[in-house]
Amino acid sequence: MVCELNAKRLSLADPPMWRWRFVMLGLAMLPCLALLYVRNPEEPGFYPPCPFFALTGLHCPGCGTLRGIHQLLRGDIPAAFGFNLFSMLMLPIIGYAFVSALLSATWDRRLPTVLLHPALIWGLLVAVLSFWALRNVPVFPFTVLAP
């Protein structure tokens, strides 16, 4: 019904440039993932630090995502979830949207689209904000959420 996951429905009726731009974007991700596999973000000075963490000393909802994806690429799934639970839970949704957009750009096909109930998105908002707050609490059960 409503295209929940893709911002823009790419179809073969679109100018080819638009579609190829998307395919190029997809291809550009491969060297980024390769770099993330080779260089561990835990060694300082190579990847830029999180601006929010650099300014405030607090973890943002995204802190630990690069370290998490690095661990995921190396096959250590528990470590990946330990660095950023939220990002890892969002990866299937991002992957679904990515595959769907790539299919529509290349074969004019898409994965089925889902109209999420607004309550689910409001729930996601609450989840992000609580995750942000709780991972900065320096007491045991919450320290698990910190990267």
């Binding site: 019904m1 409503v2 295209c3 929940e4 996951l5 893709n6 911002a7 823009k8 429905r9 949704i93 991002i94 949207a97 999420l116 998105i121 996601l124």
Partner: peptide
């Protein structure tokens, strides 16, 4: 009715 919500 394809209104993108840019959630992703």
């Amino acid at each position: 009715i394809d209104v993108p919500n840019y959630l992703v």
